Simulated scan of single mutants.
Amino acid sequence: MSRTRVLIAEDQVLLRSGIARLLEDAGMEVVAQAGDAEELMRKVRAHRPDVAIVDVQMPPDNTDDGLRAAIALRAELPKVAIVVLSQFLEERYAVDLVGDDARGVGYLLKDRVIDVAEFADAIERVANGGSALDPEVVSRMVGRRRADDPLDALTPREREVLGLMAEGKSNRGIAELLGLSGAAVEKHATRIFHKLGVADEPTEHRRVMAVLRLLRAG
């Protein structure tokens, strides 16, 4: 089985090297590293990694250069998955990044890197076409009340399950966190898909479509 090929774009050299070491130890292959948005674009085009991990704030402007480059790469090279790392929580970043397709995209706060197992799992899931949104973003979106909210039809437990789906948790992971059986999680997921109007398609696609519904509701 081939290793997941990763490119890391982060202007802080120590953090970039640390992430590279963590992912290599987790069994992934770091094919390239970049320190600014222009280098990111150039190296992704050259190496075509499975997933690019991108800091929001990067040179040359040190504003949202990384995010803008990530959005451009999603449009140009849709087969390259993107995980954006942010120092601060900005919901609009997640919404702008996802756009109309939640497949192969992640938005995480940098603090999540500390939990190596969870971080590596999120990278692998996104690289394989899933999605991973930071728990803080999910919490705000699920908890907010809106007019004509499509989430109103969900029970509190279904909201919990949807939130964990959006974070990128597998059914097994959700079951362990909520103290449920795998069958119970599957039933909750099926009801969520039905209530949100997600078509009966392959399971992973239905999950990311449910995440997209959550983002659009925000």
Rank of each mutant, 00 (worst) to 15 (best):
V80C: 11
D100E: 13
K79H: 13
D96E: 15
D121Y: 07
V80K: 04
V113I: 15
L109C: 11
R74K: 10
A127W: 03
F119W: 01
V126Y: 01
K110M: 08
L85K: 01
L97H: 05
A69E: 01
R125C: 08
A127D: 04
V98Q: 01
D134N: 08
L67P: 04
M141C: 15
S131V: 10
P78Y: 10
V80G: 07
L108E: 06
V83Y: 03
E124K: 05
A122M: 01
D101K: 05
P135D: 12
V138N: 07
R74L: 03
L108R: 03
F88M: 15
V116H: 00
I82V: 14
V137A: 11
Y93F: 11
L77A: 12
L77D: 02
G104I: 04
G99K: 01
Y107H: 11
A120F: 05
D100V: 13
L67W: 03
A75H: 04
V83K: 00
L109T: 06
I71Q: 05
L73E: 01
K79Y: 13
D101F: 09
V142W: 05
V105G: 02
Y93A: 03
R125H: 08
G129S: 13
P135M: 07
D96I: 11
I71A: 04
P135K: 05
V113Q: 05
D101Q: 14
R68E: 11
G129T: 10
L85C: 08
A81N: 03
V138M: 10
V105L: 11
G99Y: 01
V137M: 08
L73C: 08
E91N: 14
V126I: 07
A94L: 14
Q87W: 15
V137F: 06
N128M: 14
V126G: 00
E90C: 12
D121R: 05
V95E: 07
E91S: 15
D100G: 15
L77S: 07
Q87I: 15
E124L: 14
A117M: 09
A70S: 08
G99H: 05
A75E: 02
L85V: 04
V116L: 00
A102P: 09
L89H: 08
V95K: 12
G104T: 10
E76L: 01
A94S: 12
L108T: 03
A70Q: 06
